[in-house]
Design a protein around this nucleic acid. Sequence first.
RNA 1: GGCGCGUUGGAGAAGCGGCUUAACUCACCAGCCUUUCACGCUGGCAUUCAGGGGUUCGAAUCCCCUACGGGUCACCA
Length: 489
Amino acid sequence: MENVRLRFAPSPTGPLHIGGARSALFNYILAKKYGGTFLVRMEDTDLERSSAASEENIKESLKWLGMDWDEGVDIGGDYGPYRQMERLDIYEEAVNKLLAEGKAYYCFCSEEELDKEREEQSARGETPKYGGKCREMTKEEQEARLARGEKPVVRFKVPEHEEVVIDDLVRGRVVFETDGIGDYIIVKSDGIPVYNFAVVLDDVTMKISHIIRGEEHLSNTPRQVLLYDALGYEKPQFAHISLILGKDRSKMSKRHGSTSVVAYREQGYLPEALVNFLALLGWSPEGEEEIFDMERLIADFTLERVSKSPAVFDLDKLKWLNGMYIRKTAPERLLEFALPHLINAGLVGEEPTEEEIAWAQMVTEALKNHISSFGELPLLIKEYQGQVVYGDGVLDELRELGDTAVTVMTAVLEKLEKMEAVTSESYKAMLKEIKKETGIGGKNLFHSVRIAKTGSTEGPDMDKLAVIMGRDRMLERGQAFLTFMKELS
RNA sequence: GGCGCGUUGGAGAAGCGGCUUAACUCACCAGCCUUUCACGCUGGCAUUCAGGGGUUCGAAUCCCCUACGGGUCACCA
């Protein structure tokens, strides 16, 4: 493929959300795959909702995920500017052309009138669409009303009884009837073009070759195609990827949990895990491997393997993936991600000392197999440092262990009291001794200690945990355990 | 309501008319490994593809109808 130019064109009306990030990712991957250009442009014509903060958030999120653009906002390029509000002259020229050719017209209808019209149509069970009241207005009337200072909108004159065919790269051939589409607004009364119009001009002038976007735009596409035709432009290839749904199969929204990329960053997800997860939302690899770094994604990704059916956001899978990535991340990088969470939880000072760093490193290494995001790290630590709770889950096991556990813990307490501090080595040595003295080993020994100390059958190696807890807390918990066992029997 | 899209196990999904006695992944269960747990490894887990018709020697795969779920019909993008 030649001259592959793909774009991500968000509107800066909020933080970058999961769906947007996935659209960006697919565009990014394909651009890289075919040695093309990936550009980022801002669709900021909604003055009320657009904000500089949102734009910053979007750019930051993209960079965090590892999607740097070759062209676009901030860095410029040959087809700029890359914010729609800075491109108004381009749109104006096109509107004038359409107006002059009679392919568009001024509409003076008030919002109240239009609302009323729509209401009546819905009441009659019809498709709400503009009736075309201003379509045949005389030149004289137009001029007069313009002269009076009235601010009209510009509507595109939709051809009647035609079919618009879209050959979508993922959905195949999709046909729309123009009769179902009313003359739609292309320029608002304040002179600012509307998305469906601006997007066409931008994609044309920026020489976009493929438009990959969410399925919610599929029904917009005929409107845009009509404009390409009216303006005499060549159409790009379209690919509409399915929506991202929540667990209950409704469109992914706040009530399904976090939707923004930064939220996942804050919860302690690794960017590479999120990228991997996002790629799997709608795309499926050929083999059985599901762990893909960006490089492999670029190598293996194809639109042919993008699904038409909606993708469901499965948080469990994200967690699993994140855990996988956490486990293979190098210690230094692991620390880099873990530290902010430890600081936030007050486990480490704002300006960590060398000792604190060493401690943080030790803890993260010890617990990395047991967390699925860094946000869980301080929670786990605090759990080990607080009161032990013996939940229903471990009661059966405790009853089974019975006296064995009591014997083990009594011995542990005895030895602990004689020790000043606990290290990983001294702890291991202690357990070995107990094994020799009591003859209890293996699962009976380890499980007794583990459950007694943590109230859980699962967790990090006990010698590491011993260091995290410290001698005093272990003594405390050991006592508590013996008391608890007395009550249990 | 119109238009358009989708519907495969507990969950995410592959499948594009015979190679399917329906991949793979998560979750779950069992075994191995580890003096314990986790990690890892091995195995188990849909006689069935929303329901009903049809086409065909043959259908999860093609056609029609029904049901259900999203999307869209804005001076939002």
